[in-house]
Write a protein that binds this DNA or RNA. Structure first.
Lengths: 184, 184
DNA sequence: GTCGTTCTTGACTGCGCTGTCAAAAATAAA
DNA sequence: TTTATTTTTGACAGCGCAGTCAAGAACGAC
């Protein structure tokens, strides 16, 4: 739900939620039980959509490396408002992880989905020769998700599209790179 | 302040703050004005300490590349409690950036300090031949900070030290790597 | 010991919060 | 049109919050 995304859990009142959803108090409590239940539902839905969007990105581009580029550079290409809004998944972890095991479980699940998606992209890129055979797709998948998360934090801090592109470009170059020479 | 770090701004009560600081209510309000002023003071102090710790890391290791490795791998090497606690700087951005320009200013300042520190490390590593001359130290500096932030998010999500090491190792390998071959 | 300053502490104001209650309104089915 | 169900809405309970007030305690200087 956009208001949780905008304000976070604690700073969002039930009144704001009611207005955003356009339903009455009783209906909200009947459907979700309490504010916390609504938050989990919103988070689950958000993560499902993000996962689906990742897969869409992969299908939309013939080249898996191109899809990876699309995703990383896409952060820089977002509208300023979207960049500032950031990612509800990260926000939920930062705000709630210490005291809400349900949020942690959802986050781990979403993380696994995203890492697996990136891993498949890297594996496919290796098959096509877009990425060197030395690259470990498992580590690369984790690296790409970590980079994406870092990019979102930077975006929320107000990093320019140029700075974000530089970071994304660096990460992409890291994938394409040859292994360090023997003297390393 | 550890309680802001642990719970965030909204979920920390003034009562908790008083107990953590061991002073009376009036003294806190006299010294800081209000809860928000205390938060900014805590954040500023935290960021100063993190910046100093980064510089200490650089001095502690003869090799700048070794210092970078130390920092990135250090996330994986932290105690589970510290990994779970994460970074107050990231937390402040995620929780407060949308509605607190003071937090944004502090975050940008801290970001500039960290990026500059990493940039100097990379520049020195280039001088010593630890990193290829093709590496742009500005982009690499930003990339390293973004990676560090992503690592902290992953740590807070519950990523294992092994997974964190894999990501850190990947990023470090990215620095050491030769440029992509001409066929790229 | 006295005095002035600072800090602590209990009490409190004013407010907002989450969630419940119940009556009224809206909606759908017969 | 009537009835049953669902939703909306205002009112409210119970509570916690940030911040203020003022009296008592602690401390340091003389």
């Amino acid at each position: 739900m956009a208001v949780f995304w905008e304000h976070g859990y604690e700073a969002t009142s039930t009144e704001q939620l009611l207005q955003a959803m356009g339903i009455g108090r009783q209906s909200m409590y009947a459907a979700f039980g309490d504010k916390h239940g609504l938050y989990l539902a919103a988070l689950e839905r958000y993560q499902a959509r993000q996962g689906a969007a990742l897969l869409d990105r992969l299908r939309a581009v013939a080249s898996p490396l191109g899809a990876i580029e699309d995703i990383l550079l896409g952060v820089a290409g977002e509208a300023p408002e979207a960049r500032a809004r950031g990612c509800l998944g990260i926000q939920s972890i930062v705000e709630m992880a210490r005291r809400d095991p349900d949020v942690v479980l959802l986050a781990r699940s979403a993380t696994a989905v995203c890492e697996a998606a990136f891993e498949r992209m890297v594996a496919e890129a290796k098959r096509r020769g877009e990425v060197g055979p030395h690259v470990d797709e498992r580590s690369a998948g984790r690296f790409l998700l970590t980079t994406l998360q870092g990019l979102r934090i930077s975006a929320r801090t107000g990093a320019t599209p140029e700075a974000l592109r530089a970071v994304a470009g660096f990460a992409i170059a890291a994938l394409k790179a040859s292994p360090p020479s023997a003297s390393s």
